[in-house]
Design a protein around this nucleic acid. Structure first.
Lengths: 235, 235
DNA sequence: TTTCAGATCAACAACGTTGTTGGTTGATTA
DNA sequence: TAATCAACCAACAACGTTGTTGATCTGAAA
């Protein structure tokens, strides 16, 4: 050290408890990161929020980057849990919405990750979720010709974004539940019935059928099973 | 000034052209902001990218905050244009997707804005878009009982997120168009037919109908017109 | 009770950022 | 051609951030 005699006002030193200190720092980091994004995270703010000296944060996480990684790791686990949970299909959509309403920071981190440069890092939770949608698509509970992967993406994307929209629509102290109920209802309705009356959109319908005759294969992606014309719409 | 005699190597001075300098700075700022988010934007990086001295940037934009505001203003106009354009419904969805594929930075800025703290700042473009969806929902081209606002949100959310997903799925130098075509197709299919076979999900169907008898009104939001049971599904 | 590993912290150096200042230079006009 | 004015730029001060260092304290073991 260099100078620094005895500090005149030795600010109450944090009680010793490494584990809970670690937790406090990680939680604070998670909050900061969810609020303002990984780019905006500073160790200073995290330490301040955790009620810890900045130096202490550096003892628990070697660098700022290590801290970010720890949060991302936590987040990945949370996302897995989230996507994996819930019964099949309908119930699963609802439980996803519910989970996200209560863990908005996960949705925020998800979007920040999407905006980040990391490659998609397909979580196993996503695979499980996708598996469920595929199972549904192939069962006779669902219609024909569904592209399960794209459908799953539509559902997850809409749900994630919704969970961030809801509080803005509800206002500063409004209740998000009413809006969320409307959202969930419209989503269910969409899944059951769609939007258009197919008989009024012959062009669109035939454009879907055209895709069969000119399939877009190549490029690794899963190949949608396109078979229309049986009883996909109406009887 | 203080010291600073004659600079030994007077780096080639930028040709004088205030307007294009302004543009260069604004464009660079837009790029940086779209890439790394508003929080991560520094005037230094913007000036460097624009090939301009930092001081020059400060001549055109009084502070960093003014620069951010200018980008946001530009973005709002772009978003309006985007949501406003395109024909009705199906064609509009496609044009939205197309626009976003070519202007990914708009989608990124949109998500960053969503993650930011500004209140929703409902753009007029959004109102126009919503108006179109409402028009469709009320016409006899569409099914009954659609909650137009929520449907519009589902569509916009899925599309915005997709435009950021696509390049990640395609890989570093892959072609996004194939995947995007699949996405667009599944979206159209979803709008036409939905996913489930309603006759196999009596519980879900009746839960939608229940909403009529126990309507969720209150809280300012538009009240969905729920009337089922006529010919919403099948004939 | 004494000892001591390690948890906590204040201070430091190096660096990057913001916003300001005043000198330089080029285009326009008189 | 000469004067003028604004665009451009280098350097500066003030500040915040990162990562490091050594002093100090504490809980638990000896």
């Amino acid at each position: 050290m260099t100078s620094a005699s005895a500090p005149s006002a030795p600010r109450s030193r944090r009680q010793r408890d490494p584990l809970s200190t670690y937790d406090a720092i990680l939680t604070a980091a998670r909050d900061v990161m969810a609020e303002r994004g990984p780019e905006a995270l500073t160790v200073s703010e995290v330490a301040h929020r955790a009620g810890v000296n900045r130096g202490t944060a550096y003892r628990h996480f070697r660098t700022r980057e290590h801290l970010l990684d720890a949060v991302k790791k936590w987040f990945a686990g949370e996302l897995n849990r989230m996507l994996g949970e819930g019964g099949p299909t309908g119930a699963r959509m609802d439980s996803l919405l519910e989970f996200l309403s209560e863990h908005r920071e996960v949705a925020r981190l998800w979007l920040f990750a999407l905006l980040g440069d990391g490659s998609d890092s397909e979580y196993e939770g996503w695979q499980r979720y996708l598996g469920v949608v595929e199972g549904l698509a192939e069962s006779d509970l669902a219609q024909d010709g569904i592209d399960a992967e794209m459908l799953a993406r539509i559902l997850v994307a809409a749900t994630m974004v919704w969970s961030l929209w809801a509080p803005k629509l509800a206002g500063p102290d409004g209740d998000t539940r009413v809006h969320t109920k409307r959202f969930a209802r419209e989503l269910r309705r969409l899944l059951l019935f769609g939007v258009m009356r197919p008989e009024r959109w012959p062009d669109l319908v035939s454009s879907l059928q055209d895709d069969i005759e000119h399939p877009q294969v190549e490029s690794g992606g899963r190949n949608p099973r396109n078979r229309y014309g049986d009883k996909a719409w109406k009887s």
